[in-house]
């Protein structure tokens, strides 16, 4: 699927065509560069590799990547991603893909890294209710998970039981957002709803 790398700017709200107030996220997507065109003959599969998300400092770029970017005759970029089913017949190495890929009213998915919440308990992480009361002999287990399974049969805890642990800071995809506006002068996308990650975080908008 066609995709574009951008940067989350922040949220605001605009009025939709029916006059409703729609919460929106603004994404700045500067032109992405094609860094590799994979073909059936050479690589055994078809895909398109694109780079974007802003400039990367020369000294922070591994030599191997530096060479890769040089081949596409461009400067190092922050993020490189590859997409299958991205029709690569019309793109060549070093081409730029602009925001014109998207149209207003189109449905998109947005991928990003969610904000890290650290090690969290089950109430925040999985929406458990806790024990809901502090009286009737309860003591310091207001937010405890409760039972995690039966006893001597099966004598173990099943895989996938929801427990406390790291929350957030994880690749997250939000589906079915609508492109409200495309600003070609400033390379801005206005997308309905919220998208993962902090301001200035890198996101991938997929068609």
């Amino acid at each position: 699927m066609p995709a574009l790398i951008g940067k989350k700017i922040g949220m605001t709200s605009i009025f939709g065509p029916d006059g409703k107030n729609v919460p929106c996220t603004v994404v700045e997507a500067l032109p992405n560069v094609v860094t590799q065109v994979r073909t059936q003959e050479v690589d055994g599969y078809q895909s398109l590799q694109i780079a974007g998300g802003g400039e990367r400092k020369e000294k922070n770029t591994p030599s191997a990547l530096k060479g890769h970017f040089k081949k596409a005759e461009t400067t190092p970029k922050k993020l490189v991603v590859e997409y299958k089913d991205f029709d690569n017949s019309q793109y060549a190495l070093g081409n730029e893909i602009s925001i014109e890929l998207f149209e207003e009213g189109e449905y998109v998915d947005v991928v990003g890294t969610s904000k890290g919440k650290g090690f969290q308990g089950v109430v925040k992480r999985h929406g458990f209710a806790g024990v809901m009361q502090a009286s009737h002999g309860q003591h310091n287990r207001l937010r405890a998970p409760g039972s995690i399974g039966a006893g001597s049969d099966p004598s173990r805890v099943f895989k996938g039981i929801r427990m406390a642990g790291q929350m957030g800071n994880k690749r997250t995809k939000i589906q079915n957002l609508i492109i409200m506006k495309v600003d070609k002068d400033k390379n801005l996308l206005v997308i309905s709803g919220s998208i993962p990650g902090p301001k200035n975080g890198l996101v991938i908008v997929e068609k």
Binding site: I9, G10, T12, I14, F15, V26, E28, K181, D183, K186, L188, V190, K199, N200
Partner: peptide, 14 residues
């Protein structure tokens, strides 16, 4: 960054 938000608001909201 704030400027871009303001720009969006100014252009899209009458």
């Amino acid at each position: 960054m704030e400027d871009l938000i303001r720009y969006v608001q100014d252009t899209l909201i009458e």
